[in-house]
Amino acid sequence: MSNFWIAVIGSSALAFTIKVLGASVPESVLSHPRILRINNLIPVALLTALVAVNTFADKTKLVLDNRALGMAAAIALLIAKAPFPVVVVGAALTSALAYRYF
């Protein structure tokens, strides 16, 4: 089985397990304030790392390329309160132009 299939099936199975567990266990088990605080911060940590790595890494090398310009555009659009799809398309367009002309 290819790596892609392992990732697809494994992540889907675990995601579903978590959803069903959440709907089935008694509320007191996971409602400790510390657990809730950490759980709110985990997406911030992982999403930030994903932004950084997908912008500046090429496998295990750090690089500065067209994607960085795309991200600069994304940040500008987010600060200007642009809607989600505009942010993604704006970043893609900027990056594509940089890729073509630099």
């Binding site: 709110n40 997406p43 911030v44 999403l47 930030t48 994903l50 932004v51 997908n54 912008t55 067209n66 994607r67 310009l69 795309g70 991200m71 994304a74 940040i75 987010l78 989600f84 942010v87 993604v88 398309v89 704006g90 970043a91 893609a92 367009l93 900027t94 990056s95 594509a96 132009l97 890729y99 073509r100």
Partner: peptide, 22 residues
Amino acid sequence: PSAWGLDAAVPAAFLGLLWPRL
């Protein structure tokens, strides 16, 4: 994908998901 900026769409998508959490 690079010619169409799709390589930047992925981190931009993550950033869009991250932004409201900051």
